[in-house]
Design a protein around this nucleic acid. Sequence first.
DNA 1: CATTATAATGAAAATGATTTTCAATATCAT
DNA 2: ATGATATTGAAAATCATTTTCATTATAATG
Lengths: 152, 152
Amino acid sequence: MTHPQIVTEQSPAEKSRLWLRYLQQQGYRITGSRRAVVDALAQAERSLTAADLYEIGRAKHKGLGLVSVYRTLEKLEELGLVQRVHGPGGCHAYISAQDGHNHMLVCENCGRVEMFEGDDLKDFTRNLEKQSGFRIHEHWLQFFGVCTECQA
Amino acid sequence: MTHPQIVTEQSPAEKSRLWLRYLQQQGYRITGSRRAVVDALAQAERSLTAADLYEIGRAKHKGLGLVSVYRTLEKLEELGLVQRVHGPGGCHAYISAQDGHNHMLVCENCGRVEMFEGDDLKDFTRNLEKQSGFRIHEHWLQFFGVCTECQA
DNA sequence: CATTATAATGAAAATGATTTTCAATATCAT
DNA sequence: ATGATATTGAAAATCATTTTCATTATAATG
């Protein structure tokens, strides 16, 4: 097991621009609704539910419907730009995904998410496959706790 | 990281008996509905949803209601006897929990769950705390794949 | 720039999982 | 056996999500 390395991201504005361009490249149209949802997700420091995004997105695009939030999330998830956050407190929130293989550290209080990499589970996985007979495709490594702000 | 060790369990009958006794010790009454749900969970080789338990439990206790399934699951989860299985395919299934700190290997096809221990993430956790400032309470380590039966 | 095919929209209704309410019933201490 | 009350199932309510559908907005084309 190597040391964890916290992953840092590009700026929200840039992220938002890239995502919209990518959506367009994939044949999707850029609309006010999509822009609003993408911006909200790109700026978020914590994980957001569809309802959160609806509320935040409405500030930018008055007519935004909850249905479009779901539809945009669906597309962003398909394209690997966004991922669902699963935790003891629920599984209804989304956060922007990071490239490559990395994992999450989630604040149980405010939903803030840090991504990290540096887990090295190859040997462990191979042993587990041998012992269990399973063919392993994927793993999740997640930590839950309280972030610095919420500790105060 | 030490080697994974697959955890084996006591017999379904014994498990069921222990759980019911424990429920009673906690002040809960033993009823036909609870017995049916507990038996189904104790015998399960794979994770089961409330609807699964309703169907299976009805064979043992004709009048079983779905509501009682949910209420029993709630209590068993409180007491740490049962735990929810979270995965890419959903988070609606339950499996009997194992004592101590251990993790899951889940078949994406049939829902079969193997529990294992032997992860040693203490150092990794300490480093992650230092780097992030989070106070970490808990972690999940889960593997997903296809079990031997489903490979055939 | 105007036209147009059609992708995307929001509202309302539908769905699926879970929870609440409530009057009837079963459990267990006495 | 009795009685206090925990537990029940059915129906209704709730919450997250999806589907339907007629209308509107986007972007490719002339």
